[in-house]
Write a protein that binds this DNA or RNA. Structure first.
Length: 286
DNA sequence: AGGGGAACCCGTACGC
DNA sequence: TGCGTACGGGTTCCCC
C-alpha cells in the first residue's frame, strides 16, 4: 500500500480547501491582473452558484462596471467594482477564479474584460458561491466575520476576549469565522502544533502564555504559507492555474502516524475533536 | 445562546 | 467490467 501519491496520503482524501493563504494569493494576483479593467460582458452558465441576485440582474449590474480592486476577506475574494457593487467569490472546495482560462465545461460565471481578457469562476462541484452585494450588503456581511488574523489588531491581548463565551475546543474556536477570519482545518492543525496546544483543550483554559504562542503561531503559519502561495493537495489552483508550494512545509496536517518534527513521537490522527481530521502530537501539545 | 444536524453539489472511491 | 452508492468539506440555516 503506497502512501505517498502526492494527492492523498494515509488513505484519507484531502481536498485542500482554499483557506486564507490560498484566497490571499488569488486576490493579490488578480488585483495585479484585473484592477482598472472594465467588464464588457457577463455570462452565467451555472446560476445555482449565485447568491443575492438573479442571472439577469447580475449581468445587468456587472456589465459595463469597472473593477477597481481585488482583495480578500476571510476565505472570500472580494472584487470591488465602481458603482458601489462588489462580487464576493467563496470557492469552498473545488471553486477557483481563473484569468484568461481556455474554454472549460465547469465554468459557472464568465466575465469578459476589456482588451480581450476574461475572468472565469470555475467550480466542478459547485458548492462555492458568487454573491453580488451593494456597499450595505458588504458591510453587513463583513460585520458578521471576526478579526483578520494577520491584522495588527489581532493580538494576544485580544484573544481571551474573542474566546470568552465559547466553551468549545480551541481548534473549533479558531476555525469559527465569527471569531477569527479565514482559518480552516489545515491551518488550525498547523497553528496548534506550532503553539504546542492540544486541539481538544477548552477555549477558555488557555494561559496568557499560550494565547501569545497561539497568536504568534497563527500569524507565522499563515504568513509562511502566503509566501509559498498556499497549500495544494488536489484541487486548489491559483488564478493562473498554478499550485501552491506549502504542502511540503506542513508539520502535522496529513501526517498522522509520522514522527513529530519536534520530538519524534508518532503524530495522532483523530476525528474526535470536531468531526474533522485532527492531527497532533500527544507529547508536545498540552 | 450555542450546539447539533441537514442541505448544498458531484467527482471519486469503493463495493458487489 | 460496470453499475450503484457512500463520501467529503465550509457555510448557512433550521431546530432544539
Amino acid at each position: 500500500m503506497a502512501r505517498n501519491s502526492g494527492q492523498t496520503s494515509g488513505g484519507a482524501k484531502r481536498s485542500g480547501v482554499p483557506e486564507l493563504p490560498e484566497t490571499e494569493t488569488i486576490a493579490r494576483d488578480l488585483n495585479g491582473l484585473c484592477a482598472g479593467l472594465a467588464v464588457t460582458g457577463a455570462r452565467i452558465l451555472r446560476p445555482d452558484v449565485l447568491r443575492g441576485s438573479t442571472s439577469v440582474r447580475f449581468v445587468r449590474d456587472v456589465a459595463q462596471a469597472r473593477i477597481s480592486t481585488v482583495a480578500r476577506r476571510a476565505k472570500t475574494i472580494v472584487l470591488t467594482l465602481d458603482r458601489g457593487i462588489r462580487i464576493l467569490v467563496t470557492p469552498r472546495f473545488t471553486g477557483a477564479l481563473h484569468f484568461d482560462l481556455p474554454a472549460d465545461p465547469y465554468v459557472a460565471v464568465h466575465l469578459d474584460l476589456e482588451s480581450g481578457h476574461t475572468l472565469d469562476y470555475r467550480d466542478v462541484r459547485r458548492l462555492g458561491t458568487v454573491a453580488l452585494v451593494d456597499e450595505g450588503g458588504y458591510a453587513a456581511w463583513s460585520a458578521r466575520i471576526g478579526l483578520e488574523p494577520l491584522g495588527e489588531d489581532f493580538t494576544a491581548a485580544v484573544l481571551p476576549g474573542i474566546l470568552r463565551g465559547t466553551r468549545s475546543a480551541i481548534k473549533k474556536a479558531i476555525m469559527d469565522q465569527r471569531l477569527i477570519a479565514g482559518i480552516g482545518n489545515i491551518y488550525a492543525n498547523e497553528a496548534l502544533w506550532l503553539a504546542g496546544i492540544d486541539p481538544s483543550r477548552p477555549s477558555g483554559s488557555l494561559s496568557a502564555r499560550q494565547c501569545e504562542e497561539l497568536v504568534a503561531a497563527i500569524k507565522n503559519v499563515l504568513t509562511a504559507s502566503i509566501a509559498a502561495r498556499g497549500t495544494t493537495f488536489r484541487d486548489y489552483r491559483d488564478a493562473s492555474g498554478g499550485r501552491g508550494g506549502f504542502a511540503a512545509s506542513l508539520q502535522c496536517y496529513s501526517r498522522g502516524g509520522e514522527p513529530c518534527g519536534r520530538c519524534g513521537t508518532r503524530l495522532t490522527e483523530t476525528h474526535a475533536v470536531d468531526g474533522r481530521s485532527t492531527v497532533f502530537c500527544h507529547r508536545c501539545q498540552a
